[in-house]
Design a protein around this nucleic acid. Structure first.
Length: 574
DNA sequence: GCCGTTTTCGGCCCGACTGTTTTCAGTCG
């Protein structure tokens, strides 16, 4: 069973327990355990079977028992009892901003409201405002929130949220009153989907900045406005929080507003033991009259806690603080480590630039090589290449090399993995090409076993360098196809196939968790832009960011190698 | 429910803002 299945049940136990009103630390224990399971690089099934599940930090006797029960039956008593006591529809109500577990419980008990439709009905008929502690305003907010949830559910994909954030940043940066402005929050950490945008500003005129912020043309509604914190909702539905801080406190504020919550909880617990207190205003001593120890930079904050700097991308409460303590923090890959890009398209199929244009643009970005990887014929909508066209394309790529200095253009292809696992191209042509990306573009809904067989067959041809966008998921769109990931990773390792971390803005596939899982098995990753235009090449930044979230170093990534070493590192039997 | 360089019991991050209240609980990040 997939780790996510276990995590989902633990999360539901936490959410339902909140509404039931149990001890909040017990709830946190379930949340922590869910997060731990989600981010485990090995199958939880294996830990249950060899009876080591209780050795995992954050999983004790009781939750271990729950996990064993889920392993055997698919669910556990704690979960089923909560579901029979309460109503599963209540989980949706937690999505309503401004309503927490206490109020939901009260409304549930007083009015029998058990899901979004009954909440809407109760609010529309004015029943909510009659309850003690609730009033007309809360009732109106609930209605507005339900309407918003009906219109626009879920989180925003990172690239889209980042564009919005940068636009807001640039507009506010023009104000005289703004000294320094920075995007913090989950965008800075590079989470693949974004709940809201956090903007941090230093100024000597907070009122002027706040006024300008709420007057931005795309602000639909002001949610909160205080001295240091203002929140708005944009026309598109996304929430933006603006925080105004003193210059001297910039480091501690940036650290605080970057999160994650879990990272902070762990860090603050650690600080407390050392007689320190952390808030957005700095690190303070708790024993005397609260002396300020650090606040100017994030480096200062970590130094005050006797820790090395922890990069934003891994501040997720996934063991990074423990690793920092023990000097085990990975030296995360950086943009400057990347030497080339191994996944892109040209006008030969569905790209918008020629071979040479792509090469020149890549050279300007600082790369020393690229692979041109146009589609094979199965992708008819992309004008995929027949064997004849591919053969000619290989020649054209070789020729283009003569027209650019100090740069290598590898001949390649993104060959389709057909329904039966065979490759959509003559094998001798694949063998003749420098770089072969193999990808699935059809029949996404195959059964898990069939899809596993399909991918294994493709890997076992021995002709593949790299598995392209390995799960096929679209960010904020379709889910990835399902297969036995462990079996596929094992085969890829055996046949010298790297897994791609595709940075194109609609995908980010592999995601960070899968990349870390592959890396922990000894597999290499490749960062690819999947560019269809010269501008598209910059998507590699997203791939780097996700790689950092997956704790990858330059050594884990093949396209940090010089081109000759790169080519030696794949297709060993070839 | 989990955990231990103050601990096997007694803790478990910290502050801002709002609405409904007359001093603060609830929610959020």
């Amino acid at each position: 069973m997939d780790n996510n299945h276990y995590a989902r049940i633990l999360n539901e136990i936490a959410a339902l327990s909140q509404i039931k009103g149990v001890n909040r630390f017990k709830i946190r224990a379930y949340e922590n355990a869910a997060r731990t399971v989600e981010n485990l690089t090995e199958p939880i099934d294996a830990r249950i079977e060899d009876d080591t599940v209780e050795d995992i930090k954050g999983i004790g006797k009781s939750i271990a028992e729950d996990l064993r029960e889920i392993h055997e039956t698919g669910t556990c008593t704690v979960h089923t009892e909560l579901l029979s006591e309460l109503d599963p529809g209540l989980l949706d109500l937690l999505e309503i901003q401004g309503l927490g577990p206490k109020r939901i419980k009260a409304i549930y008990e007083e009015l029998g409201v058990c899901d979004l439709p009954s909440m809407k009905e109760a609010a529309e008929s004015g029943e909510i405002q009659k309850l003690s502690g609730l009033g007309k305003k809360t009732e109106q907010k609930i209605l507005a929130e339900i309407e918003r949830l009906e219109r626009h559910a879920g989180r925003t994909p990172l690239p889209q949220a980042r564009r919005t954030a940068l636009s807001i940043r640039d507009r506010l940066a023009k104000l005289d009153a703004v000294d320094r402005i920075e995007i913090a929050g989950s965008i800075r950490r590079g989470r693949e989907t974004i709940g809201d945008i956090d903007v941090l500003v230093t100024t000597d005129d907070p009122q002027a900045v706040t006024d300008a912020f709420v007057s931005l043309t795309d602000v639909a509604e002001v949610l909160v406005s205080g001295e240091t914190k203002t929140s708005v909702r944009l026309v598109g539905g996304i929430q933006v929080d603006l925080r105004v801080v003193d210059e001297d406190l910039f480091g501690s504020a940036l650290h605080y507003f970057t999160g994650s919550k879990e990272h902070h909880i762990e860090l603050r617990t650690r600080a407390k033991r050392a007689g320190l207190k952390i808030s957005e205003y700095g690190v303070f001593k708790t024993d005397d009259d609260e002396t300020l120890v650090a606040s100017k930079t994030e480096e200062d904050i970590y130094a005050a806690l006797d820790l090395p700097y922890i990069p934003p991308e891994i501040r997720e409460g996934h063991g990074e603080i423990e690793a920092a303590e023990e000097g085990r923090l990975p030296d995360l890959i950086e943009m400057s480590d990347v030497r080339g890009d191994l996944h892109m398209h040209t006008t030969e199929t569905d790209g918008r630039a020629s071979i040479l244009e792509m090469a020149q643009a890549a050279k300007e970005l600082g790369w020393s090589y690229i692979a041109i990887t146009d589609h094979s014929q199965a992708v008819t909508v992309a004008n995929g290449m027949t064997p004849e066209r591919f053969e000619a394309h290989i020649e054209a790529i070789k020729k283009a090399n003569d027209e650019i200095d100090d740069f290598t253009i590898l001949s390649g292809i993104e060959v389709d993995i057909l329904k039966d696992g065979s490759l959509d191209m003559d094998h001798d042509l694949l063998a003749a090409a420098d770089w072969v990306v193999a990808s699935v573009h059809s029949y996404f809904n195959m059964e898990t076993d069939k899809m596993t067989e399909r991918l294994l067959a493709a890997i076992e041809t021995g002709l593949i360098c790299e598995m392209g966008h390995p799960t096929g998921r679209m960010l904020g769109g379709r889910d990835g196809y399902t297969y036995d990931m462990d079996a596929v990773l094992e085969a890829a390792l055996e046949h010298g196939v790297a897994m791609e971390l595709n940075g194109s803005t609609g995908r980010l596939d592999f995601n960070a968790e899968n990349a870390r899982r592959a890396q922990s098995r000894g597999l290499k990753l490749v960062l690819g832009s999947d560019a269809h235009s010269t501008q598209g090449l910059s998507a590699i930044e997203y791939a780097v960011q996700q790689a950092r979230r997956g704790w990858l170093t330059a050594d884990d990534v093949l396209n940090t190698l010089p081109v000759d070493e790169l080519l030696k590192s794949v297709r060993p039997k070839h």
